[in-house]
Design a protein around this nucleic acid. Structure first.
Length: 333
DNA sequence: CTTATTTGACCAAT
DNA sequence: ATTGGTCAAATAAG
């Protein structure tokens, strides 16, 4: 049950989720149209309430999808990033950390702990190492049964000075191409985000030429506020790199309607969009494959970076409204 | 010096 | 008994 079941067990509920999202996309498109030509609509005075309705529908779509996905996920692993209800580690501590059996100063009390079962977990895949902007400290490495690569264990550097209990495990999968599977346990309660998260390209990967990067303004990919209807978010699904495109057949899945990086403009994900670097506000980057069903990501400006034409499978559309009320709309197959 | 990583031992769960 | 997660001494890096 450990490594194999997800990510690709996709029950019929997934269809429902996709349908919900498609509807949400339609509503989002309507809203976009409404916002891009606000003056005509405003004449008849109906646009404001219409927009409000659309927002409600869009949010409902996302909410429904989230509940479908979270209810049908494996009970052991939620693929959702941390929720808004911060667990407040003090509460968790009292519950599960009878690990503090350091009472006796007996010399060798190593490994005296209880496995924490209560913290939420989620998993990300990426073809490369991802620096998520947090300071991690490696505390273990273990060969795992039937796995070619060892599993690496990290805890937050600020476990002791701030009591931050976040941990993660990183393991290279057997897949072809090899993916880095990162499983996060628990929220960060520290406030020491070092830098904008970024991709680390390791030399062993060739994914550099055809990776998709999603850049968004937030410093922290997990700092969204799901309960605030006006906090935009983006629901990302498997954005999978499908294959290299045979030369000549540039896939115009989508077109970029905008050319220059500007923090509040309209972008469409497009494989041939040339890279623009994260100048200006700190941006978060996600690589293709690092998002998964149910991932909720804070919104902002997104870009697609490919230096080689590629085709991508995006089996779910994603959409979002950013803080400037500019619609960011991704589409895909 | 301080701080981070490596690595075998230890422990809980299975 | 086996496996996975953690600890902590030894070691490396800064």
């Amino acid at each position: 049950m450990e490594s194999s079941s997800w990510p690709e067990n996709l029950p019929t509920d997934r269809k429902k989720a996709v349908e919900k999202l498609i509807r949400g996309r339609e509503f989002a498109n309507q809203l976009r149209d409404m916002l891009t030509k606000p003056f005509q609509e405003e004449a008849d005075g109906s646009s404001v309430s219409d927009a409000g309705e659309l927002i409600v529908k869009i949010m409902g779509s996302f909410t429904d999808t989230l509940s479908i996905l979270t209810c049908t996920e494996s009970d052991e692993v939620s693929q959702l990033p941390p929720n808004n209800n911060h667990p407040s580690w003090d509460a968790l501590k009292s519950e599960d950390s009878s690990e503090s059996c350091k009472t006796s100063a007996t010399k060798d009390r190593r490994g005296c702990y209880k496995r924490r079962k209560t913290s939420k977990t989620w998993t990300k895949f990426s073809p490369t190492l991802i620096d998520d902007g947090h300071a991690w400290r490696k505390y273990g490495q273990k060969m795992i049964l039937n796995a070619k690569h060892p599993r690496n264990y990290f805890r937050c550097t600020h476990r002791f000075d701030q009591g931050c209990q976040a941990t993660k495990q990183v393991q290279i999968t057997e897949d072809e191409p090899a993916m880095h599977r990162t499983t996060y346990h628990g929220d960060h309660t520290c406030h020491n985000l070092l830098k904008a998260p970024q991709i680390i390209f390791d030399s062993t990967t060739t994914a550099r030429d055809s990776s998709i990067l999603l850049n968004f303004e937030s410093n922290n990919p997990f700092d969204y506020k799901p309960n605030d209807p006006f906090t935009p978010f983006l629901l990302a699904s498997s954005i999978k790199q499908e294959q290299q495109l045979k030369e000549g057949g540039t896939p115009s899945i989508l077109h970029n309607h905008h050319q220059q990086p500007s923090s509040s403009s309209e972008y469409f994900l497009s494989p041939e969009l040339t890279a623009f670097e994260a100048s200006g506000p700190p941006m978060t980057t996600l690589s293709a494959g690092s998002t998964d069903h149910g991932d909720v990501i804070s919104s902002g400006v997104y870009s697609c970076t490919t230096s080689t034409p590629s085709t991508f499978e995006m089996d779910m559309m994603v959409g979002s409204v950013d803080f400037d009320d500019v619609l960011t709309n991704f589409e895909g197959y």
